[in-house]
Design a protein around this nucleic acid. Structure first.
Lengths: 214, 214
DNA sequence: CTCCTAAGATGATCCAGATCATATGTCAGC
DNA sequence: GCTGACATATGATCTGGATCATCTTAGGAG
């Protein structure tokens, strides 16, 4: 099996894959926990991984979702300190662990690699600022609107866009309870900001949502 | 007047200062706004600057505070996209603007510069994750406890530590209203987690606060 | 010392979201 | 088409924080 890391060519991808070790995970398994020493750079080879915080027992906030090919937890791997959050699989997944030494060597020897990693770090930071914006917004409807707009932007497909997440996931992205999320989504549907087809959220357009968040 | 950038020696500091232009600001003035193109790397030469988001009219969230010598908004300067937040002075300040070209050249030609900037980016990301943690915590007391612990950690001085911020600032760091912040701080004082001396918050120890956040 | 302004304190009221309970819908597997 | 498991839906109640109003305190300027 051959994997593609980020959008690198096969040579670089193979070089990266060979420089680390791969592990397989089932659904909802912990890859590493907040507080662990970052001795490696993790890269999703297949499946999906979420980075999460637990502000209190039972409550979960999603910091980011990572698909096949994507490196995550880049900043901790960079400075070798501790992971500020926990990484958990959201489906069967394979994760590549590149030792920190090899990672730093790659950064120095490959301009392509270093450019992509740097840009990924910037992207993560942008994402975090958006998350802060969402969590600091008081209105549930506006929080969800912002979160949905972000999801729509990230997969930049053609309309109609189907949101591939459950209400519970959206709740964890916005810091709201499941029930509040369900109710707010319904209210958004009633306001014609989105449509619901057998539970799934579908965006015909982002205009009404954008109008809502101002 | 000679300025020290980060903790660089005079040669590098001077090289950096000469590569850009300096502007002076009064109190509470906007340096750049969310959405502006990042064509430069801003560095605080004197005074203090805050990065803020406005989740709704009248409400403000502080993303970060930057002192003399510190570069801020590093990720936008790096990838040249738009600033995800607004920068405002919190006192009379001077800010150096290093053009993006010079910034990128510095990154390539000075390993020292590039190392410090990279580590600063990692630090900012850690800070953001902590902010997300704070905003996602439901209890006002715990939000403030976490924020105070972070402030105490950042200035890592000897006890007793005096918190150099007003209640309004702490409110903006935690996403709470001014009144709720004042009340929660009082409750923390009543629980002997901190002391209040003529309005100022003083930490004799961080132990009780740490116990509170678990 | 007095005045003035900004910050801190406190009371009263209101409401959006959390929580608990229960019902309905969806779909995969038999 | 039936069943079970999970997701969505919705009602009832509770509560902590927001908001508005008022008051006190601290500390600088004159």
């Amino acid at each position: 099996m051959e994997y593609l890391v980020e959008s690198f060519d096969h040579d670089l991808s193979n070089r990266i894959v060979r420089s680390g070790t791969t592990r397989s995970y089932g659904f909802d398994q912990t890859i590493f926990s907040e507080g662990d020493k970052a001795t490696f750079l993790p890269i999703v080879l297949s499946g999906t991984v979420k980075m999460v915080k637990f502000p209190e027992p039972g409550k979960e906030v999603i910091l980011g979702l990572f698909q096949a090919g994507q490196a995550f937890a880049v900043p901790p791997a960079m400075d070798g300190k501790r992971f500020p959050a926990t990484a958990i699989t959201t489906e069967e997944s394979e994760v590549l662990f590149v030792p920190r030494d090899s990672f730093l060597e790659l950064m120095e020897t490959s301009a392509e690699f270093s450019a992509v990693i740097t840009s990924r770090m910037c992207g993560i930071l942008r994402h975090q600022v958006e998350t802060i914006q969402i969590l600091a917004t008081p209105s549930a409807e506006q929080r969800i609107a912002t979160a949905l707009l972000r999801l729509a932007k990230e997969r930049r497909g053609e309309f109609p866009i189907e949101i591939a997440y459950r209400r519970k996931d959206i709740a964890d992205m916005t810091g709201l309870s499941l029930e509040t999320t369900i109710r707010a989504v319904r209210r958004l549907a009633k306001k014609d900001c989105l449509t619901i087809a057998s539970g799934r959220i579908i965006l015909e357009s982002t205009t009404p949502l954008k109008k809502l968040v101002g």
